[in-house]
């Protein structure tokens, strides 16, 4: 019976695969171009430890970028992620130093991040605040909490060896940090592409009013994306603590902008409702590979940001011109 159904369905609806637009494949093309440029300009670029290095250093901002993507797709923005990363970082370090087990410390750090995300979500939905204002306020507030927790000094002692190997180790033959990054994107892909919840995030970002009329739980969805963003930002903080083996009160400063840059370059629309996980992943690669190429070619840190800024502008000009043409 079921077989009959499916065959007849296929006959009535022979769908040709949707053609990808240039704007959709652009991020991937840029990644390919950067790989070529990297290979040409530096012998060291294609060596496996350099590639792993790129990905490992990308892990923290990239995981934040995943959370940011959830928020931005739902037409929000989360400026607090850098501070929340710092919260995750010092929380896990403090708890470990106080002798709590590793899993408990990590869970608590991530939960703390989720809590700040919850506060963001409530301020924005129940408090009807603009996302940029609400998260700016929590960004400032959370950084202050970090300084209270640590007296402003880095935490060097009491972090167990086992915790450090979480990121530095390579259980699967590649550095664990790389694995975390890939897992984050894979999970995000499944959620955003293949679950109702994920599609409804797009719907909320596309038109909140319509999503409401369609019977979607708009408020819960909006709160949830900030919770996800907060938890992922804190996770990035935990990874940072594990990678360096210290708790750093300045951890995460400026990361909100890096994360936004990554997803925007990857074609995620800041006005909500548009963007793919694959695109965002390419965005992460674009920013990380570009930075790496500049470092390998001994471009000074000061000058690097000119390239990054220029790249963002070029990408945005391209996307807006495509959008104009499509309409």
């Amino acid at each position: 019976m079921e077989n009959v159904m499916t065959t007849s369905l296929q006959r009535t609806a022979p769908r040709k695969p949707r053609r990808l637009s240039l704007a959709e494949v652009a991020p991937a093309l840029i990644v390919a171009a950067l790989l070529v440029i990297g290979t040409v300009t530096s012998d060291r670029f294609m060596q496996s430890n350099n590639i792993f290095n790129i990905l490992q250093y990308a892990a923290e901002p990239a995981i934040i970028a995943v959370g940011m993507m959830f928020v931005v797709l739902a037409r929000g923005i989360d400026l607090s992620v850098g501070s929340v990363m710092g919260i995750g970082n010092v929380t896990v370090a403090l708890l470990l130093a106080a002798g709590y087990p590793i899993t408990v410390s990590i869970m608590a750090a991530i939960a703390f991040g989720g809590l700040i995300g919850l506060i963001n979500g409530l301020l924005i939905t129940k408090g009807r605040m603009e996302p940029i204002i609400a998260t700016l306020a929590t960004m400032i507030g959370a950084r202050s909490v970090i300084y209270f927790m640590t007296d402003g000094a880095p935490l060097f002692s009491g972090i167990p060896r086992d915790f450090v190997t979480i990121v530095r180790g390579n259980a699967l033959g590649v550095p664990n940090g790389v694995v975390f990054l890939l897992v984050a994107f894979a999970v995000a892909y499944v959620i955003l592409r293949h679950t109702r919840y994920g599609r409804h995030i797009y719907a909320v970002g596309g038109s909140e009013e319509t999503a409401e009329l369609f019977g979607m739980k708009v408020t819960s969805i909006k709160i949830s994306v900030y919770v996800i963003s907060g938890m992922l930002a804190a996770t990035a903080g935990v990874i940072g603590a594990s990678r360096l083996g210290i708790g750093d009160p300045n951890s995460g400063i400026g990361y909100e902008l890096v994360a936004i840059t990554m997803i925007v370059v990857g074609g995620v629309r800041l006005a909500g409702g548009v963007g793919t996980v694959f695109g965002a992943f390419c965005g992460v690669l674009i920013v990380s590979i570009l930075t790496n190429i500049l470092q390998l070619n001994n471009v000074s840190t000061h000058a690097q940001h000119i390239f990054l800024g220029g790249g963002v502008i070029a990408m945005m000009l391209f996307l807006s011109s495509r959008e104009r043409r499509e309409h």
Binding site: H194, T195, R196, R199, G206, T210, A211, G215, G273, V274
Partner: peptide
């Protein structure tokens, strides 16, 4: 018009009642 312009026609038609496999994943 009540619509989500950047989602597909099918998703707009079935918004909130998308068919699922295993009760979790959308059956595209």
């Amino acid at each position: 018009i009540q619509e989500i312009p950047d989602l597909t026609v099918a998703e707009n038609l079935y918004a909130g009642m998308e068919p699922r496999k295993n009760g979790i994943f959308i059956d595209w």
